[in-house]
Design a protein around this nucleic acid. Structure first.
Lengths: 141, 141
DNA sequence: ATGACTGCAAATCGTTTGCACGGTA
DNA sequence: TACCGTGCAAACGATTTGCAGTCAT
């Protein structure tokens, strides 16, 4: 919540301005515990800030993401969405039926499949684990 | 490779025909150890089968996938791709630099980050684990 | 004035759909 | 004859780009 400060500081220290639009977008992201798609974010903003364009939302998300302030989700078969927080690590549980995404970041091992099923009532049919980074060739930039 | 039989059997037993186009698509998928995007698949086919449309590739992939004959990949930031094999379980290692995708399906625990780095030369910066299935409401169909 | 930031419209990319034709049961 | 499968063109949804106007330094 008071992350807000971090966002502002990081933006400024990286040479970017904290415009009203960016402020609105950031505050909207921070006040949602769910991750939001660009569209959802835009819709939620239009009420109070009718003039904000979807394009600006995309550009801001791209910027914040690049600065490491956002966590980008893209579960198989679902829309791309973002939430506040560092990006290095997130886990989700997706419903292939209704698309619900349950975030369980913080818990790791794959053995938790069974306990997840017990706790959430999900019937888990498959999973996907993705590590990302830089390969031997790309490491040295 | 001689999976080919399985594909044919499954198709027929599910009430679908094994057309020349489908045969070509299946054989192309089976002969690649990499996972392929619809576009890549189409390009690779056009040489020998100039008349196959991209749409047919999409429709066939969708069909085979629905029959459980394919494994669908969609790493964060990469294109959607498919390879032969059951879908319930796959792991990949993606290079954020060049897009290379290393498949390491078969090995599970997250603790393998370090050993993966050692073995592949990757610098791993983040990961994502996704379980999917059906939530309490969707389980009963 | 300069450069950053924005909004709009148009372009692009991957994917899906509508439709009419062709082959086969 | 009735369908299934196909190709083509068009529709679509998400995202990106070009461009010209605006704002703050």
């Amino acid at each position: 919540m008071t992350y807000s400060k971090d966002f502002a500081v990081k933006l400024k220290s990286s040479g970017y301005k904290l415009t009203p639009q960016r402020r609105a977008i950031i505050s909207s992201i921070l006040s949602s515990e769910r991750s939001l798609t660009p569209q959802e974010l835009h819709s939620s903003l239009v009420e109070k800030h009718p003039q904000i364009g979807l394009v600006t939302v995309y550009r801001t998300l791209e910027l914040l993401n690049r600065l490491g302030l956002l966590c980008e989700f893209q579960p198989q078969g679902s829309a791309r969405s973002f939430k506040a927080g560092p990006a290095e690590h997130h886990h989700h549980l997706v419903c292939r039926g209704c698309g619900e995404v349950v975030d369980f970041t913080g818990r790791c091992p794959i053995e938790l499949k069974t306990s997840l099923e017990r706790e959430t009532g999900f019937l888990i049919t498959d999973h996907q684990l993705e590590f990302a980074g830089y390969c031997r060739n790309c490491r040295g930039k």
